[in-house]
């Protein structure tokens, strides 16, 4: 990941206003207690990397932030809006929170440009022309403007994921959630996606990333969170987290992912 290590984490600006706040969040799948009393405060401009073994609840946690999953106890506030059963609030939050998925979830029946302009036109009520300008801008930012009129199925995995990032950005979100954005990619495509994400971090976007890309965590994260069995076990700056992990479970996890 040497190509992306041009800036250290401390060089990014972090604000003091709270963007996302989870307090005492609990969730169950049937009898299975998947999130146990999660407390997390994310400030504007923070880049948080969430890691942990599979089944530790990390994806579930970030999916609660835009209500793709419903939490059963506790409180989630995104940019001052509390997530409850109020559909209006859910829509408000989803408009402001972008999400990038492991499997891209592009719309295969629409061209890349249509994928990008869909939400701005229908959700933001933006005129088509303006939406296309915005879309073109972001396609340039993720370095694939020439693919605008192709269908997602004609692109490589890395290109699809960059389109997915651009699609979220077109909604001009305040927070971006990444749910294992590089896990479904071939190794040679991971870099191009991470570069775009680093770029995005540099622009001051508030980001929560579930990922196992530790190089990315070292480069851009200002906080790394380790989860296991539905709990936040440890959180720290990347340097402290990787060089000086506190809990045994973190040490075990790090030894497993770093020495394979």
């Amino acid at each position: 990941m040497s190509a992306v290590q041009s800036k250290t984490a401390s060089q990014f600006e972090v604000g003091t206003d709270v963007m996302v706040e989870l307090s005492g969040v609990n969730k169950w799948y049937g009898q299975f207690h998947v999130l146990k009393d999660i407390n997390l405060t994310v400030y504007r401009g923070e880049r948080i990397v969430v890691c942990g073994p599979s089944g530790s609840g990390k994806s579930t946690m970030i999916r609660c932030i835009n209500r793709l999953e419903e939490h059963q106890r506790g409180k989630i506030v995104v940019d001052g809006v509390e997530l409850s059963h109020d559909l209006k609030n859910i829509d408000r939050v989803r408009r402001e929170v972008g999400m990038v998925f492991q499997h891209f979830n592009l719309f295969p029946h629409l061209t890349v440009l249509e994928n990008l302009t869909l939400a701005p036109i229908w959700v933001r009520k933006m005129p088509k022309k303006e939406a296309e300008e915005v879309a073109t801008h972001y396609l340039e930012r993720v370095k694939i403007p020439e693919q605008a009129h192709k269908y997602p199925g004609q692109l490589s995995g890395g290109q699809q994921q960059r389109v997915a990032i651009a699609r979220s950005l077109c909604m001009n979100p305040k927070v971006m959630l990444f749910d294992e954005p590089t896990s479904a990619l071939d190794p040679e495509m991971i870099k191009e996606v991470l570069e775009v994400m680093v770029e995005l971090a540099r622009s001051g976007m508030t980001m929560l990333c579930v990922t196992h890309e530790m190089g990315f965590a070292r480069t851009v994260a200002n906080r790394v969170i380790f989860m296991d069995f539905g709990e936040i076990i440890e959180q720290n700056t990347p340097e402290e987290f990787f060089n000086n992990p506190k809990s045994d479970r973190t040490k075990l996890f790090l030894s497993q992912i770093l020495h394979h």
């Binding site: 829509d91 989803r94 408009r95 592009l106 909604m171």
Partner: peptide
């Protein structure tokens, strides 16, 4: 999920 996450 992709559609919902975009706020549709």
């Amino acid at each position: 999920e992709g559609a919902m996450a975009l706020g549709l």
